[in-house]
Write a protein that binds this DNA or RNA. Structure first.
Lengths: 210, 210
DNA sequence: CGTCTATTTGAATGTACTCAAAAGCGGTGG
DNA sequence: CCACCGCTTTTGAGTACATTCAAATAGACG
């Protein structure tokens, strides 16, 4: 159930609590008092997500914002012909949800699925909203999170507008080497907006160039 | 210098201050005291931007976040062959900058240009940062702004992954009819990621369908 | 070991691009 | 006011990038 080898996992259990990782993540941007930390942690739900299981399906109401404590997940959507498109890959220490549907409490248009055995800490929309009243510092935290998500997404838009499939693949491998090692080529293709067959051709070309 | 006919402009001058629009924009998400409003306004720089002039060029440091008081602007970038790609169109009551470079105070990779005679209110990066200390409520305001920007951008990604050029054009016209009326087809094409020639073909096909 | 899915390969096809030329349109100056 | 200039839009022919379909091969998993 963990991305770490077993012995490392045991080691971690002895030296840190399950919530230390997420608190470190938050501490990068805001500092909380011990009481605030406790309150925040009390809102989280710990969930084990075995490989290939989903934590969100189409038409479900997306009311969870999930912090990835271990493992990796991806979100994707289906087009009218049933073709999958990967919206994002998310690794350890990332936050993930169907943001549009989470914020608007509308039925989801996407799926979120574990790429490998994972553990997440989920924050319910109700608590997300309350958090801003009880600990206003979280406004700052999530502002920065949203800023980063926005600029990352905009960079992706620019890359799809200005680069061809081969260049986009090269950048993807470069930017997310950890992800590239975990997911199938079919999934990478669906992130890049090309067919798996064509990605295979690109990879062969790349080999012959070196 | 304004998007409004002259007589309307005069009328506005008599009934509202130049800053009322932006204060209304902010009041949609947070409420400020009169003192806070005054402080915020004191940080803004009013700028007239005649059609086709730029407020940001490549390699410049992007240290302004601009609220569009009147008119319309667009941001775009150039690829290695000099081809333009429109990153976003922005209308009255929108906020615009090269967000990545604004936040990181790095040289810009984009251009921002007025589509028509426009007026903007600019907030300097220095003041943007200070604002969160002096009036923490702005954390909330910009969190919501960033959230909206993020979800809008993600929707664009999904649309480019799942729709063909013709469907993307139809949605664009539908979603931003005001923009469609103001900009050239070449600019729309560069937003959709297609050539102006091909957009012309699409438009002809659309006519024959009706 | 067998089954299921991912990946590779190739041929035929389609969507969108390039290049070139003509037509349309808007702004400017004589 | 009209003529001209530059830029946008249209049109068409030829081309390229990427897809579809089909079949073979390789890998993953129970």
């Amino acid at each position: 159930m963990s991305a770490h080898p077993y012995f490392l996992n045991l080691y971690l259990r002895h030296t840190m609590e399950i919530h230390d990782l997420i608190l470190q993540n938050i501490a990068k941007h805001i500092s909380l008092s011990p009481e605030e930390e406790d309150h925040f942690i009390s809102l989280l739900v710990y969930k084990e997500v075995p490989k290939k299981t989903t934590i969100l399906t189409e038409d479900q109401t997306c009311n969870q914002l999930s912090y990835i404590h271990s493992g990796a997940l991806r979100s994707y959507c289906l087009d009218k012909n049933g073709k999958e498109s990967t919206i994002m890959f998310a690794m350890v220490d990332w936050w993930l949800t169907d943001m549009y549907c989470f914020l608007n409490e509308s039925p989801s248009m996407t799926f979120i699925e574990a790429i490998e055995d994972s553990c997440v800490l989920s924050l319910h929309k109700k608590h997300f909203d309350q958090l801003f009243t009880t600990i206003p510092k979280f406004e700052r935290f999530f502002r920065i999170l949203m800023q980063n998500a926005y600029t990352r997404e905009q960079l992706r838009t620019i890359e799809t507008l200005t680069l061809d499939a081969e260049e986009r693949y090269a950048r993807f491998i470069n930017k997310y080497p950890q992800i590239a090692g975990k997911v199938t080529q079919k999934q990478i293709a669906s992130y890049l907006g090309i067919t798996p067959e064509f990605l295979s051709v690109i990879r062969k070309r790349d080999l012959h160039r070196k």
